[in-house]
């Protein structure tokens, strides 16, 4: 006679289910999934940030590490007296004032155009507008440099043939910001796609109802599209704001990192890079990094404050 499985198993106490509430269990699973990211954040982002905070209190120099001294808040005091910092802040804000609205408007404009129900070949056209994003920035900036050259550039040749003035796009303190903004428009593809996704999430019934009430295109855009798109627009705005205050590659390429003309393109990130990696003043560069962080943090918090009143969340969540 053979024994059944039940008979062979040792006697166990009855299994007791973990008495966790579903919400707690869900939170624990959430923590498990988010764990790797948190570890990465602590190791590779928070760690370097703390290190840079400590470095900002020293005169650490990469090629003279043995002579490192604790200097307290000297580097922060120097930020106030260094004319380069004031120049770079002004340059960054000037550029931001032009580039951010332009990028926001252009990406929304293209999204509206490429989402229009009557437009044919939407896919290929969207791909065309997105395509420049795929080109390495250094390569595209070099192409733009040729395009904007005063001697042999196509843009000035076109302007000249129309009898219009031919500005020195890159070497004029006035024209360099429009030139960089123009170059930057090549990178709107990502924002345009996000805007298209936002536009497609607006319920069409709202437009139909509005049309029945006699609303025109402009009213529909102002009263329906913009409010319902506002979370998407806020997201784009925050990302563009951060990107603008981190602006580096194009400015570095067009002037070889010098910030010409007359420091007009010596943006904050370029100053940070030069001080840290070219001049080896790591302590001071760390202080600049924290200044940049605080500036972006303040601006972002202001945006979030603005969002409390102006951004519409369909579920009531903000």
């Amino acid at each position: 006679m053979t024994a059944t499985i039940e008979e062979l198993e040792p006697t166990r106490p009855p299994a007791r289910a973990l008495a966790l509430r579903p919400s707690v269990r869900e939170a624990l699973w959430g923590l498990v999934f988010i764990g790797p990211w948190v570890v990465g954040l602590l190791l590779f982002t928070a760690g370097p940030m703390i290190a840079s905070l400590v470095m900002s209190l020293t005169d650490f120099n990469l090629v003279r590490p043995e002579a490192t001294r604790f200097v307290g808040l000297d580097n922060y005091a120097r930020l106030v007296s260094d004319p380069t910092i004031a120049q770079s802040l002004i340059a960054t804000f000037k550029f931001a004032l032009l580039a951010i609205p332009l990028t926001m408007a252009a990406s929304l404009g293209f999204a509206l155009l490429l989402n229009h129900p009557k437009l044919a070949f939407k896919g290929p056209l969207r791909a065309l507008v997105y395509m420049p994003v795929m080109i390495p920035l250094v390569a595209s900036t070099l192409v733009w440099l040729g395009f904007l050259n005063t001697e042999t550039g196509w843009l000035n040749a076109m302007l000249g043939s129309l009898g219009l003035p031919q500005p020195d796009w890159i070497n004029s303190e006035t024209w360099v910001y429009p030139a960089l903004s123009l170059i930057g428009l090549w990178g709107i593809g990502n924002f345009m796609l996000i805007n298209i996704a936002g536009l497609q999430s607006v319920p069409t019934e709202l437009y139909e109802a509005a049309r029945m009430d006699g609303a025109g295109a402009w009213t529909q855009f102002r009263r329906i599209t913009i409010p319902l798109m506002s979370p998407v627009l806020l997201y784009n705005l925050v990302i563009i704001l951060i990107g603008t205050f981190q602006y580096f590659t194009q400015a570095f390429v067009i002037t070889n990192g010098r910030g010409d003309p007359n420091n007009a393109t010596l943006f904050m990130n370029l100053v940070l890079y030069r001080e840290g990696f070219i001049f080896n003043h790591m302590g001071y560069a760390s202080a600049i990094a924290w200044l940049l962080f605080v500036v972006v943090l303040v601006l972002t918090l202001l945006l979030f404050g603005f969002a409390r009143r102006r951004v519409y969340y369909a579920g009531g969540e903000r």
């Binding site: 994003v133 390495p136 920035l137 250094v138 930057g184 990178g187 990502n190 924002f191 796609l193 996000i194 997201y235 784009n236 990302i239 563009i240 951060i242 990107g243 603008t244 981190q246 602006y247 580096f248 590659t249 194009q250």
Partner: peptide, 8 residues
């Protein structure tokens, strides 16, 4: 969705 300039 980050700005290309950020990445580059």
């Amino acid at each position: 969705s980050a700005s290309p300039s950020t990445v580059a």
